[in-house]
Amino acid sequence: MIEQLGNGLLLGLIVAIASVSLSLLYGVTRIVNFAHGEIIALGAVLTLFFSSSPESSFLYLDRFSPLGSSFIVSSIASILLCGLFGALLELCLFRPLRKNNYGNVAVLVITIGLSIFLRHIFLLFASAKPASYALDLQKREDYFGIQLTPRNVQVLIIGSVVMILVGLFLTYTKTGRAMRAVRDSSELASVSGINSDYIITLTWIFSSMLAGFTGIIQGVINNVRWNMGFLILLLIFAGSILGGIGTSFGAMFGGFIIGMLVQLSVGLSFMDGHTEAKNAIALALMILILLIRPQGIFGSKERIS
Protein backbone atom coordinates (compact mmCIF):
# COMPACT_ATOMS: atom_id res chain seq x y z
CA MET A 1 0.00 0.00 0.00
CA ILE A 2 2.84 2.35 0.91
CA GLU A 3 4.24 2.24 -2.60
CA GLN A 4 0.97 3.82 -3.76
CA LEU A 5 1.33 6.77 -1.39
CA GLY A 6 3.07 8.94 -3.98
CA ASN A 7 0.42 8.22 -6.61
CA GLY A 8 -2.22 8.74 -3.94
CA LEU A 9 -0.94 12.22 -3.16
CA LEU A 10 -0.95 13.09 -6.86
CA LEU A 11 -4.44 11.80 -7.57
CA GLY A 12 -5.66 13.34 -4.34
CA LEU A 13 -4.34 16.72 -5.45
CA ILE A 14 -5.94 16.44 -8.89
CA VAL A 15 -9.33 15.45 -7.52
CA ALA A 16 -9.10 18.11 -4.82
CA ILE A 17 -8.50 21.00 -7.23
CA ALA A 18 -11.12 19.72 -9.65
CA SER A 19 -13.62 19.31 -6.80
CA VAL A 20 -13.09 22.88 -5.68
CA SER A 21 -13.78 24.18 -9.17
CA LEU A 22 -16.85 21.98 -9.62
CA SER A 23 -18.20 22.76 -6.19
CA LEU A 24 -17.71 26.51 -6.60
CA LEU A 25 -19.51 26.45 -9.93
CA TYR A 26 -22.36 24.42 -8.47
CA GLY A 27 -22.58 26.69 -5.45
CA VAL A 28 -22.80 29.92 -7.40
CA THR A 29 -24.81 28.78 -10.44
CA ARG A 30 -26.69 25.74 -9.04
CA ILE A 31 -25.66 23.88 -12.18
CA VAL A 32 -24.59 20.25 -11.76
CA ASN A 33 -22.10 20.41 -14.58
CA PHE A 34 -21.45 17.02 -16.15
CA ALA A 35 -19.38 18.78 -18.81
CA HIS A 36 -16.84 19.81 -16.18
CA GLY A 37 -14.74 16.77 -17.02
CA GLU A 38 -14.53 17.94 -20.60
CA ILE A 39 -13.23 21.34 -19.54
CA ILE A 40 -10.54 19.45 -17.64
CA ALA A 41 -9.74 17.48 -20.78
CA LEU A 42 -9.79 20.69 -22.82
CA GLY A 43 -6.96 22.10 -20.73
CA ALA A 44 -4.88 18.97 -21.29
CA VAL A 45 -5.71 18.64 -24.99
CA LEU A 46 -5.01 22.29 -25.80
CA THR A 47 -1.68 22.14 -24.03
CA LEU A 48 -0.76 19.09 -26.05
CA PHE A 49 -1.91 20.84 -29.20
CA PHE A 50 0.25 23.87 -28.50
CA SER A 51 3.32 22.06 -27.28
CA SER A 52 3.56 18.49 -28.53
CA SER A 53 6.23 17.28 -30.86
CA PRO A 54 5.38 17.06 -34.58
CA GLU A 55 5.55 13.26 -34.45
CA SER A 56 2.79 13.10 -31.89
CA SER A 57 -0.03 11.06 -33.29
CA PHE A 58 -2.54 12.49 -30.85
CA LEU A 59 -3.73 15.33 -32.99
CA TYR A 60 -4.42 14.83 -36.65
CA LEU A 61 -4.00 18.53 -37.12
CA ASP A 62 -0.52 19.83 -37.72
CA ARG A 63 1.15 21.11 -34.65
CA PHE A 64 0.20 24.66 -33.87
CA SER A 65 3.06 26.40 -32.15
CA PRO A 66 3.00 30.16 -32.46
CA LEU A 67 4.10 30.04 -28.84
CA GLY A 68 7.36 28.28 -29.57
CA SER A 69 6.05 25.04 -28.08
CA SER A 70 7.29 25.81 -24.60
CA PHE A 71 5.33 23.65 -22.20
CA ILE A 72 4.87 26.40 -19.64
CA VAL A 73 3.72 28.97 -22.20
CA SER A 74 1.39 26.41 -23.76
CA SER A 75 -0.09 25.59 -20.36
CA ILE A 76 -0.77 29.22 -19.57
CA ALA A 77 -2.35 29.78 -22.97
CA SER A 78 -4.53 26.71 -22.47
CA ILE A 79 -5.68 27.81 -19.03
CA LEU A 80 -6.63 31.22 -20.41
CA LEU A 81 -8.50 29.60 -23.29
CA CYS A 82 -10.34 27.35 -20.83
CA GLY A 83 -11.43 30.51 -19.00
CA LEU A 84 -12.62 31.99 -22.27
CA PHE A 85 -14.48 28.79 -23.04
CA GLY A 86 -16.19 28.93 -19.64
CA ALA A 87 -17.24 32.52 -20.31
CA LEU A 88 -18.66 31.53 -23.70
CA LEU A 89 -20.61 28.66 -22.16
CA GLU A 90 -22.16 31.06 -19.68
CA LEU A 91 -22.88 33.85 -22.15
CA CYS A 92 -24.13 31.73 -25.07
CA LEU A 93 -25.77 28.83 -23.28
CA PHE A 94 -26.37 28.97 -19.56
CA ARG A 95 -27.33 32.62 -19.20
CA PRO A 96 -30.08 32.39 -21.83
CA LEU A 97 -31.28 29.19 -20.16
CA ARG A 98 -31.32 30.91 -16.78
CA LYS A 99 -33.22 33.93 -18.11
CA ASN A 100 -35.87 31.57 -19.44
CA ASN A 101 -36.14 29.85 -16.07
CA TYR A 102 -35.16 26.41 -17.26
CA GLY A 103 -35.52 23.84 -14.50
CA ASN A 104 -32.49 22.32 -12.83
CA VAL A 105 -33.16 18.91 -14.33
CA ALA A 106 -33.39 20.31 -17.86
CA VAL A 107 -30.08 22.11 -17.38
CA LEU A 108 -28.53 18.96 -15.92
CA VAL A 109 -29.50 16.99 -19.00
CA ILE A 110 -28.12 19.75 -21.20
CA THR A 111 -24.75 19.51 -19.44
CA ILE A 112 -24.74 15.73 -20.01
CA GLY A 113 -25.39 16.34 -23.69
CA LEU A 114 -22.67 18.98 -23.77
CA SER A 115 -20.28 16.54 -22.14
CA ILE A 116 -20.89 13.84 -24.73
CA PHE A 117 -20.68 16.38 -27.54
CA LEU A 118 -17.36 17.85 -26.39
CA ARG A 119 -15.84 14.46 -25.66
CA HIS A 120 -16.51 13.29 -29.17
CA ILE A 121 -15.17 16.50 -30.61
CA PHE A 122 -11.89 15.64 -28.86
CA LEU A 123 -12.10 12.13 -30.29
CA LEU A 124 -12.72 13.57 -33.73
CA PHE A 125 -9.56 15.65 -33.69
CA ALA A 126 -7.43 13.21 -31.76
CA SER A 127 -6.95 9.49 -31.83
CA ALA A 128 -8.27 7.28 -29.06
CA LYS A 129 -4.71 6.45 -28.06
CA PRO A 130 -3.31 8.20 -25.00
CA ALA A 131 -0.57 10.74 -25.68
CA SER A 132 2.06 12.38 -23.55
CA TYR A 133 3.56 15.82 -23.43
CA ALA A 134 7.02 16.21 -24.92
CA LEU A 135 8.71 16.19 -21.55
CA ASP A 136 11.81 14.15 -20.77
CA LEU A 137 11.29 10.93 -18.84
CA GLN A 138 12.26 11.03 -15.20
CA LYS A 139 13.06 8.29 -12.73
CA ARG A 140 11.27 7.98 -9.41
CA GLU A 141 13.31 8.95 -6.41
CA ASP A 142 12.79 8.55 -2.73
CA TYR A 143 11.31 11.55 -0.88
CA PHE A 144 10.84 10.73 2.81
CA GLY A 145 9.98 7.17 1.85
CA ILE A 146 7.55 8.27 -0.87
CA GLN A 147 8.38 7.35 -4.45
CA LEU A 148 8.00 10.32 -6.79
CA THR A 149 9.71 11.79 -9.83
CA PRO A 150 11.16 15.29 -9.41
CA ARG A 151 8.47 16.53 -11.77
CA ASN A 152 5.79 14.95 -9.59
CA VAL A 153 7.18 16.90 -6.67
CA GLN A 154 7.02 20.11 -8.68
CA VAL A 155 3.41 19.33 -9.57
CA LEU A 156 2.57 18.71 -5.92
CA ILE A 157 4.11 22.02 -4.92
CA ILE A 158 2.50 24.05 -7.69
CA GLY A 159 -0.86 22.38 -7.11
CA SER A 160 -0.76 23.04 -3.38
CA VAL A 161 0.17 26.67 -3.96
CA VAL A 162 -2.76 27.03 -6.38
CA MET A 163 -5.14 25.55 -3.81
CA ILE A 164 -3.92 27.90 -1.12
CA LEU A 165 -4.29 30.87 -3.48
CA VAL A 166 -7.83 29.80 -4.34
CA GLY A 167 -8.66 29.58 -0.66
CA LEU A 168 -7.21 33.03 0.02
CA PHE A 169 -9.00 34.46 -3.01
CA LEU A 170 -12.39 33.19 -1.87
CA THR A 171 -11.89 34.20 1.73
CA TYR A 172 -10.28 37.58 1.56
CA THR A 173 -10.96 39.31 -1.73
CA LYS A 174 -14.09 41.28 -2.50
CA THR A 175 -14.73 39.20 -5.59
CA GLY A 176 -14.34 35.97 -3.63
CA ARG A 177 -16.66 37.31 -1.01
CA ALA A 178 -19.18 38.31 -3.67
CA MET A 179 -19.01 34.77 -5.09
CA ARG A 180 -19.73 33.35 -1.67
CA ALA A 181 -22.57 35.82 -1.23
CA VAL A 182 -24.23 34.80 -4.51
CA ARG A 183 -23.69 31.17 -3.53
CA ASP A 184 -25.39 31.81 -0.21
CA SER A 185 -28.41 33.74 -1.48
CA SER A 186 -28.47 35.33 -4.90
CA GLU A 187 -31.56 37.39 -4.01
CA LEU A 188 -29.94 38.87 -0.95
CA ALA A 189 -26.75 39.46 -2.92
CA SER A 190 -28.61 41.42 -5.57
CA VAL A 191 -30.37 43.65 -3.04
CA SER A 192 -26.92 44.23 -1.58
CA GLY A 193 -25.84 45.72 -4.89
CA ILE A 194 -24.08 42.69 -6.38
CA ASN A 195 -24.53 42.10 -10.08
CA SER A 196 -25.02 38.34 -9.93
CA ASP A 197 -24.77 37.89 -13.71
CA TYR A 198 -21.30 39.40 -13.57
CA ILE A 199 -20.28 37.26 -10.60
CA ILE A 200 -21.66 34.13 -12.28
CA THR A 201 -19.64 34.87 -15.42
CA LEU A 202 -16.51 35.39 -13.32
CA THR A 203 -17.21 32.10 -11.57
CA TRP A 204 -17.48 30.28 -14.90
CA ILE A 205 -14.15 31.75 -15.99
CA PHE A 206 -12.44 31.04 -12.70
CA SER A 207 -13.82 27.52 -12.36
CA SER A 208 -12.97 26.63 -15.97
CA MET A 209 -9.42 27.91 -15.59
CA LEU A 210 -8.99 25.76 -12.51
CA ALA A 211 -10.44 22.78 -14.36
CA GLY A 212 -8.05 23.35 -17.26
CA PHE A 213 -5.15 23.54 -14.82
CA THR A 214 -6.25 20.20 -13.34
CA GLY A 215 -6.30 18.64 -16.78
CA ILE A 216 -2.76 19.82 -17.51
CA ILE A 217 -1.32 18.36 -14.32
CA GLN A 218 -3.26 15.17 -14.90
CA GLY A 219 -1.68 15.04 -18.34
CA VAL A 220 1.76 15.56 -16.85
CA ILE A 221 1.34 12.83 -14.24
CA ASN A 222 -0.40 10.27 -16.42
CA ASN A 223 -1.21 11.05 -20.01
CA VAL A 224 -3.69 12.89 -22.19
CA ARG A 225 -6.79 11.03 -23.37
CA TRP A 226 -9.91 12.20 -25.11
CA ASN A 227 -12.06 10.87 -22.26
CA MET A 228 -9.75 11.67 -19.35
CA GLY A 229 -12.18 14.18 -17.87
CA PHE A 230 -15.10 11.83 -18.03
CA LEU A 231 -13.14 9.07 -16.32
CA ILE A 232 -12.34 11.28 -13.36
CA LEU A 233 -15.69 13.08 -13.17
CA LEU A 234 -17.30 10.61 -10.80
CA LEU A 235 -14.43 10.95 -8.36
CA ILE A 236 -14.79 14.72 -8.51
CA PHE A 237 -18.49 14.54 -7.74
CA ALA A 238 -17.72 12.12 -4.94
CA GLY A 239 -15.10 14.47 -3.53
CA SER A 240 -17.42 17.49 -3.61
CA ILE A 241 -20.25 15.57 -1.97
CA LEU A 242 -18.01 13.99 0.63
CA GLY A 243 -16.66 17.37 1.71
CA GLY A 244 -20.11 18.91 1.84
CA ILE A 245 -21.78 20.36 -1.24
CA GLY A 246 -20.98 23.99 -1.85
CA THR A 247 -18.16 24.34 0.64
CA SER A 248 -14.81 25.04 -0.98
CA PHE A 249 -12.61 23.76 1.82
CA GLY A 250 -14.82 20.72 2.15
CA ALA A 251 -14.47 19.99 -1.55
CA MET A 252 -10.71 20.38 -1.29
CA PHE A 253 -10.54 17.96 1.59
CA GLY A 254 -13.14 15.52 0.24
CA GLY A 255 -11.49 15.46 -3.15
CA PHE A 256 -8.12 14.77 -1.63
CA ILE A 257 -9.48 11.92 0.50
CA ILE A 258 -11.27 10.32 -2.44
CA GLY A 259 -8.23 10.54 -4.74
CA MET A 260 -5.99 9.18 -2.04
CA LEU A 261 -8.32 6.28 -1.20
CA VAL A 262 -8.73 5.29 -4.83
CA GLN A 263 -4.99 5.10 -5.33
CA LEU A 264 -4.23 3.44 -2.01
CA SER A 265 -6.81 0.73 -2.61
CA VAL A 266 -4.77 -0.33 -5.64
CA GLY A 267 -2.13 -1.46 -3.18
CA LEU A 268 -4.45 -3.76 -1.26
CA SER A 269 -3.44 -7.40 -1.70
CA PHE A 270 -6.82 -8.66 -2.89
CA MET A 271 -6.86 -5.95 -5.55
CA ASP A 272 -3.93 -7.62 -7.27
CA GLY A 273 -4.72 -7.74 -10.95
CA HIS A 274 -8.03 -5.93 -10.44
CA THR A 275 -6.84 -2.32 -10.54
CA GLU A 276 -9.75 -1.45 -12.81
CA ALA A 277 -11.93 -1.83 -9.74
CA LYS A 278 -9.97 0.75 -7.75
CA ASN A 279 -12.85 3.23 -7.63
CA ALA A 280 -15.09 0.71 -5.88
CA ILE A 281 -13.56 0.86 -2.43
CA ALA A 282 -13.24 4.63 -2.34
CA LEU A 283 -16.82 5.16 -3.44
CA ALA A 284 -18.14 2.53 -1.03
CA LEU A 285 -16.35 4.40 1.75
CA MET A 286 -17.90 7.64 0.53
CA ILE A 287 -21.39 6.12 0.80
CA LEU A 288 -20.56 4.87 4.27
CA ILE A 289 -19.36 8.29 5.46
CA LEU A 290 -22.41 10.00 3.98
CA LEU A 291 -24.70 7.56 5.80
CA ILE A 292 -23.14 8.74 9.03
CA ARG A 293 -22.81 12.41 8.04
CA PRO A 294 -25.39 13.16 5.33
CA GLN A 295 -24.31 16.79 5.11
CA GLY A 296 -20.74 15.78 4.23
CA ILE A 297 -17.65 16.10 6.36
CA PHE A 298 -17.54 19.90 6.34
CA GLY A 299 -21.15 20.61 5.44
CA SER A 300 -23.30 21.99 8.19
CA LYS A 301 -26.80 21.09 9.23
CA GLU A 302 -29.14 23.93 8.43
CA ARG A 303 -31.46 25.26 11.08
CA ILE A 304 -34.96 24.67 9.92
CA SER A 305 -36.76 27.86 10.80
Binding site: A178, A181, L188, S192, S300
Partner: peptide
Protein backbone atom coordinates in the same frame (compact mmCIF):
# COMPACT_ATOMS: atom_id res chain seq x y z
CA UNK B 1 -25.88 35.10 4.37
CA UNK B 2 -26.10 31.84 6.31
CA UNK B 3 -22.59 30.68 5.57
CA UNK B 4 -20.95 33.90 6.63
CA UNK B 5 -20.33 35.06 10.15
CA UNK B 6 -22.42 37.83 11.63
CA UNK B 7 -19.43 40.15 11.29
CA UNK B 8 -18.97 39.25 7.63
CA UNK B 9 -22.66 39.78 6.96
CA UNK B 10 -22.34 43.28 8.34
CA UNK B 11 -19.03 44.07 6.62
CA UNK B 12 -20.47 42.85 3.38
CA UNK B 13 -23.42 45.21 3.56
CA UNK B 14 -21.23 48.07 4.59
CA UNK B 15 -18.77 47.81 1.75
CA UNK B 16 -19.98 45.69 -1.13
Amino acid sequence: FEKMSVLENMQFSGSS
